[in-house]
Design a protein around this nucleic acid. Structure first.
Lengths: 138, 138
DNA sequence: TCTATACCATTATATCATTACATCATGCGA
DNA sequence: TCGCATGATGTAATGATATAATGGTATAGA
């Protein structure tokens, strides 16, 4: 087991904010939250530093296509590759296991001579709630 | 057959620049190229507009994790989902067929109740040349 | 106490992208 | 031909995201 040193106050504040949001937030959105402001966090860099640490721990993931950050669905965090599916309408996002696709994807990259590091998968579409809403609109 | 109206001068200049670069460039990097500047393109917006059109035509892809743009490997362009593998060291990038992975990925998302639109896959690692270079370093 | 380390604060700046609005060229119907 | 709609373009300003540079504070251990 790797030792998981306890999070600092700033890191906890940011993680709690993301967990409560249940959707991806940009660093500046986090900064604007009352719960974050009242804890004394007031510069972008403070947020980014906390996010860096949380990402190292696997507790937060970055969504590249939104420039935003999402709390990991697992309390303990993880660094295995995962995918995300993001609602175009409400931005609700869900973390998905890649169900072995990462193996195939990695193999394609290796076939091209690359040594593969990270694999990121992001899908966009409509979440269940927004699908229903769209159906009602006709 | 869909009619493919001819590209405008700005669009051609940008596409040619990306094709010659053989790697992803940001909009501002494109803007700084002599070949682009001498054609009279001098504002970011001009570049972004050309890129929008080229992306609609499937002639250029956007790499989300770099905020950069890459010319499509096929002359005619396409809009099918593809993946990219990007060298962490030199930024050389290659477009990859997803070899049916997109079907599985889409299925996972649909299992979560999402209606899937776009699928984006980006991998990072080392390109063949940089792997060799790293090996020589020991 | 001294020093090393980790964490954090502040300001400024770099980087990426869009909004707002004016202009120009082209094509098309009256 | 004239008037007008349309779309591409130009310019300036701004918004949004992220990092650099510098230094302060707290704590732990020699």
């Amino acid at each position: 087991m790797t030792a998981k040193p306890k999070l600092t106050k700033n890191q906890s504040v940011v993680l709690k904010a993301l967990t409560r949001a249940k959707k991806p937030l940009t660093a500046y959105e986090i900064l604007d939250l009352a719960t974050v402001r009242t804890q004394g966090l007031k510069a972008p860099l403070t947020i980014y530093r906390a996010l860096d640490r949380l990402r190292d721990e696997g507790l937060v993931h970055r969504i590249e296509s939104l420039n935003a950050f999402l709390a990991c669905c697992e309390k303990a965090g993880h660094t295995e590759p995962v995918g995300f599916v993001i609602c175009d309408n409400c931005r609700k996002s869900v973390e998905l296991r890649l169900s072995d696709c990462e193996t195939h994807l990695g193999a394609s990259a290796e076939a091209a001579g690359f040594q593969v590091g990270e694999i990121r998968v992001e899908m966009t579409g409509l979440c269940p709630a927004c699908v229903k809403a769209a159906a009602r609109q006709g």
